[in-house]
Design a protein around this nucleic acid. Structure first.
Lengths: 152, 152
DNA sequence: CGCAGATATAACATATATGTACTATTCATT
DNA sequence: AATGAATAGTACATATATGTTATATCTGCG
């Protein structure tokens, strides 16, 4: 199984309404992108969640505690406990103790985890390249600007 | 618990790369919108998935079979089995047999389900109105056009 | 008609998320 | 220093998704 934002849901909510279905359009576009990322990563033996976790662990020099990781992945700690369980079962990370705080657990990426992550990056770059081919730099800028207007 | 596209995932994948992070921007914007929809629906006692299912069942005059519903919600049938289990446990829909095909099961929305759906529509309209306030009609059009360029 | 293959649902295993409750530790305050 | 509050991780219950397998039913072909 391989799905986050557990895509698969319709998002057929609100095709019409005060916003003329724009909200749905954003949700559906995201769902399509998720599916593409997911497909790309399946070929590498990763899910989006697993890749994200590895990516955070690798892009931060300090070995992160599970709580830090939860913060960076914007999810609750009980989720990270399970995600690290699965990554550890896959042999991609290893739990280790934290010298500063005996309550804390640090996740360390194994060499196999590093390889898998590198393959994931390549897969994702391909999806991004396809994305960039459909939308020129100017349009990408406009898109980002419009989306950021929705924040807050 | 109330989350679909099981938001909560970071989507911190690929902030840079060939597309300059545009893909991430779309995923993150969608996640924010999901959370808003989710919050709005929690107040009504629905999840996005449950609302979507009710919405499909109500907006189609014919009582749908579970397989039809799966098709309309773009998900696998085993998911619908469980979703209808929960909706039935909530008293919002009722399973019934299908005269044409004794294998099939039809989901019928109960009066309470209709009420709940109506409340959900109101909640979603509010989110859409807030959305429309942040982005004028012209910008919404531009956004939809840019997103639709990503299809296919 | 009878049977082979397709289809509809459900059952079960699993992945990913949330939230609550429990345990071990740390920290702050007296 | 002792203790009560806060924090880190885990365990457990549950929601939402997928995929696989089993069962009942339907369909079309000989």
């Amino acid at each position: 199984m391989n799905d986050t934002c557990q895509p698969g849901l319709s998002r057929d909510v609100a095709k019409s309404g005060p916003d003329a279905g724009t909200l749905s359009a954003v949700l559906e576009a995201a769902e399509r992108l998720q599916r593409r990322l997911d497909s790309a990563l399946v070929g590498v033996g990763l899910s989006i969640s697993k890749f994200d976790a590895l990516d955070q662990l690798i892009s931060t020099d300090e070995p992160l505690t599970l709580g830090d990781l939860a913060g960076r992945l914007h999810c609750v700690r009980s989720n990270i406990t399970q995600l690290i369980d699965r990554l550890e079962a896959d042999g991609l990370v290893k739990r280790g103790s934290c010298s500063d705080d005996r309550r804390a657990v640090r996740a360390k990426v194994t060499p196999i985890g590093e390889e898998r992550h590198a393959a994931g990056v390549t897969a994702i770059r391909a999806v991004q390249a396809a994305f960039a081919e459909k939308l020129g730099a100017g349009d990408r800028d406009r898109l980002v600007r419009l989306l950021s207007a929705l924040e807050g």
